[in-house]
């Protein structure tokens, strides 16, 4: 811990990515969906940030907006700023945007079964990215694509094959190869292992971690699996109903859990030490995304909720330089959640 803090002080924190007060809404025929509601995020060079939360919390929408890939219509970015290596994504021209995607920031998608073009060979799909961003010809790009395939553990000879000839885990490796082909400074992985068999998951995660170190890439890892977070991330942001409700280093989130929702996430995991203990799932259903919450969206599921939680959006509260919590209960200096207390 001590050392860590020293590094932070001496080394000027350099952010490859900054998100400021970002809000995104989907306007459909039937309803307005408030997907992201004013979030702030910073990603340091060469760190991995875990973005955690239930399905529908707005994780995917957030990261899609980093590449300006939120489908429009129905998606509307209603406010905020996104800076990738200092450039405001929202202000980029089409040409600049195309130059940024894949080169500065790349993405690995959730479902490898559908994320590859079925009528192009995998080699061509990797080479396409290389041809856009690096000044090379077709043959050269294809050779580089083959090399990239080998980097992710697939024989270069298979570059001429089509996606349907690969298994799910192999396809995800191809996805990784595409994303890393031009050595982006930021890599986004949207639940990269959810669609894979458990046995394959570990391999793919290890591969990603190794390559991330090899290419000195910063990474945002979206997942709802806290185990994956523990294995891969340096920092964690917990999302609920389009807001980041708790944010901190891996240690802060895991050892000094503050937010009742984060606590709920931990409690709903099976306890490996005490196999007789019962699972304690979070009661109630996930928040309704069509509601524009002007109070704490978690209030109706929160065991600690007070009158105040229904009246205003909780303020951000910093418990250390890095540890942010958005919960009104801490207005009471005596307040603590059960989990941290038991452990402590």
């Amino acid at each position: 811990m001590e050392e860590n803090k020293d590094i932070l002080k001496t080394d000027q924190p350099e952010y490859v990515l900054e998100i400021k007060d970002l809000s995104i809404r989907y306007d459909t025929d039937d309803a307005k969906v408030y997907a992201v509601n004013g979030i702030d995020l910073k990603l340091k060079k060469q760190t991995t940030l875990g973005l955690v939360g239930e399905t529908g919390a707005g994780k995917t929408t957030t990261v899609l907006s980093l590449l300006k890939l939120v489908p429009d219509p129905p998606g509307v970015i209603t406010g905020g700023e996104i800076l990738v290596n200092g450039n405001d994504v929202m202000q980029l021209s089409k040409k600049e945007l195309s130059a940024m995607r894949g080169k500065e920031i790349a993405m690995i998608f959730q479902d490898p079964m559908t994320s590859l073009n079925p009528v192009m060979t995998v080699g061509d799909q990797i080479a396409e990215s290389i041809m856009i961003h690096e000044n090379v010809g077709k043959e050269e790009a294809f050779k580089m694509a083959q090399k990239m395939l080998e980097t992710v553990g697939i024989s270069g000879e298979r570059a001429v094959e089509y996606p349907h000839q690969f298994s799910g885990g192999m396809k995800q490796r191809v996805d990784i190869a595409i994303a890393l082909a031009c050595h982006p400074s930021i890599l986004i992985a949207d639940e990269p292992t959810t669609a894979l068999d458990v046995t394959i998951q570990a391999q793919v995660l290890k591969l990603m971690k190794d390559l991330k170190d090899q290419f000195q890439t910063s990474m945002i890892m979206i997942t709802h699996d806290l185990g994956i977070v523990a294995r891969t991330c340096d920092e964690v942001a917990v999302m609920y109903a389009g807001r980041i409700v708790e944010e901190g280093t891996l240690e802060e989130i895991f050892k000094k859990t503050m937010h009742p929702y984060t606590e709920g996430l931990f409690n709903s995991l099976p306890n490996m030490k005490d196999r007789n203990s019962k699972l304690k799932p979070i009661k109630g259903l996930i928040s309704d995304p069509t509601v524009d919450y002007q109070y704490c969206a978690f209030a109706d599921r929160c065991p600690y909720a007070t009158e105040k939680c229904w009246q205003e959006v909780p303020a951000k509260r910093y418990f250390s330089e890095t540890h942010m919590v958005m919960c009104s209960a801490y207005d009471d200096p005596e307040f603590h959640i059960a989990r941290g207390h038991e452990n402590g």
């Binding site: 590449l67 195309s98 995607r101 073009n117």
Partner: peptide
């Protein structure tokens, strides 16, 4: 999805 992948490549 594969169009999104292609867009993400630039």
């Amino acid at each position: 999805d594969y169009l999104r992948t292609a867009r993400a490549k630039g």
